[in-house]
């Protein structure tokens, strides 16, 4: 059972919620200290992040480069907009595959919850189609899934 909740607001927003058994100071640090980011923000098992630039100040750059260890990889760039340690991070990011994906504006809030932290991450996508497609991620990979997803998620009901 996943502890991650993923919901939507309006046409273009995705909200991710997750609780951590550590205080906001620690969770905030794990999101803004490149040495820590490099240890967990790795995606699927087997991937590493050989390059991690994370300048946690307004206007500071973000650049994460991932490698699958077999010559494959891609990278993400972004910029920090506002930081209010240890409670709030506002930044924008895009993936390069190698073409850049539409900008994703992300506000991450950390609130003390008992001895832990409740995280709410609000991602604002540039349009409804990008967001709809983003929500289709829970399904399995592959051709058939692509078409099921195309019909069920990307395309409007009754089309």
């Amino acid at each position: 059972m996943s502890k991650l909740s993923l919901t939507t607001e309006g046409d273009t927003i995705v909200v991710v919620k997750r609780r951590f058994d550590a205080p906001p100071e620690e969770v905030y640090r794990a999101h803004t200290d490149p040495e820590l980011v490099q240890q967990w923000m790795l995606g699927p098992e087997g991937w590493t992040m050989p390059v991690c630039i994370c300048e946690a100040r307004p206007g500071g750059s973000i650049r994460y480069e991932w490698s699958d260890g077999k010559g494959g990889g891609f990278y993400l760039t972004g910029e920090f907009i506002e930081l209010d340690p240890p409670h709030r991070i506002l930044h924008v990011e895009r993936m390069h595959l190698p073409d850049p994906t539409p900008d994703n504006r992300i506000e991450t809030i950390f609130t003390a919850d008992g001895s832990g932290t409740a995280m709410v991450m609000r991602m604002t996508l540039p349009n409804a189609a990008t967001r709809q497609a983003m929500l289709a991620t829970g399904m399995e990979h592959g051709m058939e899934a692509s078409y099921v997803r195309l019909e069920a998620q990307v395309l409007p009901a009754g089309a």
């Binding site: 991650l4 993923l6 997750r18 550590a22 967990w40 995606g43 497609a133 983003m134 289709a136 899934a145």
Partner: peptide, 29 residues
């Protein structure tokens, strides 16, 4: 294969997010 690139990115995003936070739990512990 029209949606493969979009798929790759999106599937990566969700799966990656789950794996990331499990890893972050261990790091915080």
């Amino acid at each position: 294969d029209a949606l493969h690139e979009l798929d790759d990115y999106l599937s990566m995003l969700k799966k990656g997010m789950e794996a990331n936070y499990a890893r972050l739990d261990r790091l915080l512990a």
